[in-house]
Structure formats: C-alpha cells, structure tokens
C-alpha cells in the first residue's frame, strides 16, 4: 500500500524534482570552483569536501532514487560500504598520524 502511494506521488512531479536537483548540482559545482580560489586556510579542503558530499548525497537520494526506495537494505549497503571505507582510511591514518618520527 505504501509502495502504491509513493509511486503515485512520484508520477505527479518527478521532472520538477529532477531539474531542480540538476540546477542545484550545477550551482554547487560553480560554488566549489569559485571558493577554491579564496584564501580560507584549512577550510578550503573542508568546504570542498562538504560540497562534494552534499552533491553525492543529492545524486544518490534523488537520481538513484534512494529517497523513495522502500528498501531499507539499500541504505544499509551504502552506509556499510562507507563505514568500511572510513575504517580503511581511518585505521591506516591512525598509524601515520601517531608516528613519532617522519
């Protein structure tokens, strides 16, 4: 039943949503490009990565339809993969960041 109402909803206005997301993505690309030329110290990387994460989330949620996927497991797959990616990066860097030499 829930599935039915969601698909009915998505039939009414997906185009508006798709074009809106597309415009936001282009805007964010422009913003990230311009901000890179400003002097923000360490925050240049932070801003660039946050914008990239927002863009990736938008693509996943609305273009890849995670938003209306009734399937919780798909979200679990994404989060699990990201968690293990963070494990790889985090525990590896835990070695490099705590070396008294180098």
């Amino acid at each position: 039943m829930a599935d039915h109402s969601v698909s009915a909803h998505s039939k009414s206005s997906p185009l508006k949503l798709y074009f809106g997301v597309w415009a936001t993505l282009l805007l964010l690309t422009y913003v990230t490009y311009r901000v890179a030329f400003l002097e923000l110290g360490p925050f240049n990387s932070v801003v660039a990565l946050v914008i990239a994460a927002i863009k990736a989330t938008l693509v996943a949620l609305f273009f890849m339809h995670v938003w209306r996927a009734g399937e919780k497991f798909i979200k679990a797959v994404i989060l699990t993969s990201l968690f293990f990616l963070l494990l790889l990066l985090g525990l590896t860097m835990a070695d490099y960041m705590t070396r008294p030499w180098s």
């Binding site: 863009k55 990736a56 693509v59 273009f63 890849m64």
Partner: peptide, 25 residues
C-alpha cells in the same frame, strides 16, 4: 542508470580532490 550515477559520484569527489587542492593565489 545506477551504475552511471555512481561513476558520476566518484567524479564529484575526484574533482575537488585532484583539481582544487590549493588554488588560491
């Protein structure tokens, strides 16, 4: 389509990581 979007997402991260490391003058 899912595959194509994923390749797009990878690029969304590659762009700032490779092109925009320390751009400001």
């Amino acid at each position: 389509g899912l595959y194509w979007h994923f390749v797009d997402i990878i690029w969304i991260f590659l762009f700032p990581l490779l092109y925009l490391i320390d751009r400001h003058p």
